[in-house]
Design a protein around this nucleic acid. Sequence first.
DNA 1: CCAAAGATCGTG
DNA 2: ACGATCTTTGGG
Length: 203
Amino acid sequence: MSARTQPDVVRRAKALLGRTIVGHGVSVRITEVEAYGGCEDPASHAFTRTPRSEIMYGPSYRLYVYRSYGIHFCANVVTGPTEIGAAVLLRAGEVVEGHELARFRRGGTAPERDVQLARGPGNLAQALGITLDDLGTDLLADHGSGPEFTGVRLGPERRGRPRIASGPRVGVSKAADVPWRFWLDGDPTVSAYRRSPRAPTPG
DNA sequence: CCAAAGATCGTG
DNA sequence: ACGATCTTTGGG
């Protein structure tokens, strides 16, 4: 990476903003992501190459799912290159299709709280019905066009240049000041920033 | 084998 | 500020 050229994972993270992802009958417009730089990034699960992170050293646009704090699942898009093992964490989105199903998966919340349906990575994965069963899914595979599709896949690439804001990643204790969290500026579905209690003091 | 940490979230 | 809950990882 150079001063003029940002890393591939950052460009790809930004490119995912505004794009839709479909998960088991629920469609979400991605509004917030974080970039993780694989073996070059101490905050990445792939910084130490283990059985769990091996999928990040595989083909791009596969789904990496991990269990968070024993409670939630978090969904990531592997972005490559394979020797780096980078990926993008999907942190928040706006439900644009399948609202009732998403509400049910989230525990039966009221429609007036739909803005929170997919706010935060654990909630986003839950709204999409993503679990470890979906680990390794090819997010670009062609399944035809129709409502009968029940798996996970990305929608078409976004067009246009939305206003993108950035800041430090949420909850990471290493590289806590690297500004690799990106979101659609002003979007109400974006999650709140929380610094890791284990991170060193800002600066 | 055991202990600890963790890319979270809702509640108090 | 804290607890829920469990897998992965690293140390002895």
